[in-house]
Design a protein around this nucleic acid. Structure first.
Lengths: 197, 197
DNA sequence: TAATTTAAAAATGTCGACATTATATAAAAG
DNA sequence: CTTTTATATAATGTCGACATTTTTAAATTA
């Protein structure tokens, strides 16, 4: 849980490892902003807050928008084809009988990834991925609320097909506006979940 | 040097530390993309390349542009005042007799920081700072070429005052175009330096 | 009773030894 | 002479013990 103390001894016993690998693992989690450390005072799970939630999602929206804008300039035939394929995979699965949320998430993120891939910038894609990971704890709150919520999923699906069409017609302005809204949609719902904690 | 092997034993002796602190330090450098590690094969200084140079500087240009765009929307009186002050400090120093490059860099980055600070997004500012750090190795090549090059400094200075004016008049389009050019300016020079290595 | 000091307990961070893995060298085979 | 195999050397990564610091608890003082 956020703010929770991470005791070295406890973690060593739980994962059956020594000091070194554990501390290095914690170092990696610090790099991901999931853990913070105070000198000589140990490690803690990073805190969450509405301010942080808002900031991360707004940054994500802007970065995604930027990647898409660049992708629309640089994207070639292969980019279009891959986006089309990813959209198809997501579409088909969204219409299927039983939806496994993990598989849906895989296809969902694969679709968005196929769109931004066209920007051809490793660094921007890395930044985007990093922000996506940082938003995971908040996104999980959204998933708990919206598990098997077919209505929300339906709206989502409409936006995805529209996004693909905007991509194929290279409508930068329309796509950037839509993607920013698309990403920011869950924020209000998550804010409520956060308040209830 | 890029690609150089980092021997644990050597580093331990050089810095007079044990295994753990050294490996944790390396972990932090990995997070900054300055060092890479291959499992069971040790640590290496990250490579540099023209592709990487180009990608980093283009990403920086886009992020800086984004921050400025947002700052122009959200910036208040204090933001304007701080930018004005930072601009003044940079201006005065650029006109002074003897220029210490380190002090000039401090005032230079302080000026740009004062502009983007108005975007009010900790995450975006963090991303911006991280990219700036990643570009340091390339920027140092530029500094070696342009140490005490008053001509380059003069052009730079013009752009800075123009940037401030665009900020005070909230000319988003003009400012974003200028800042992107401003950041990308050194790229061609650095490319040449890189080729000569 | 509250605040401060002192002592005990627990936790962190560092070290050097050791086991495992990769690399370099020499020997053997094709 | 080249390629393969076997051996020796060197380097990495892991572990548990130890020293230092922080936290908790008890005792003393005002």
């Amino acid at each position: 849980m956020p703010r929770e103390k991470l005791h070295i001894r406890t973690l060593k016993e739980r994962y059956n490892v020594g000091t070194s690998p554990l501390r290095e693992a914690l170092s990696q989690l610090i790099a991901k902003d999931l853990v913070i450390s105070e000198n000589q005072r140990g490690f803690y799970v990073s805190d969450i807050s509405i301010d942080d939630l808002t900031d991360i999602y707004q940054a994500r929206a802007k970065i995604e928008s930027l990647c898409i804008e660049m992708a629309f300039q640089k994207g070639d035939d292969h980019w279009e084809a891959n986006a089309l394929a990813a959209s198809h995979r997501l579409n088909k699965y969204s219409e299927s009988e039983h939806i496994d949320m993990e598989e849906w998430q895989n296809r969902h993120s694969a679709f968005h990834k196929s769109l931004v891939a066209g920007c051809m910038s490793p660094r921007l894609l890395q930044i985007r991925h990093s922000l996506y990971e940082k938003s995971t704890r908040y996104r999980n709150l959204w998933l708990k609320e919206n598990i098997s919520n077919t209505e929300t999923l339906g709206i989502n699906q409409k936006e995805h097909t529209e996004l693909l069409n905007l991509a194929l017609s290279r409508d930068t302005e329309g796509a950037t506006r839509l993607i920013e809204d698309h990403i920011l949609t869950p924020v209000e719902i998550i804010k409520k979940s956060l308040s209830q904690l």
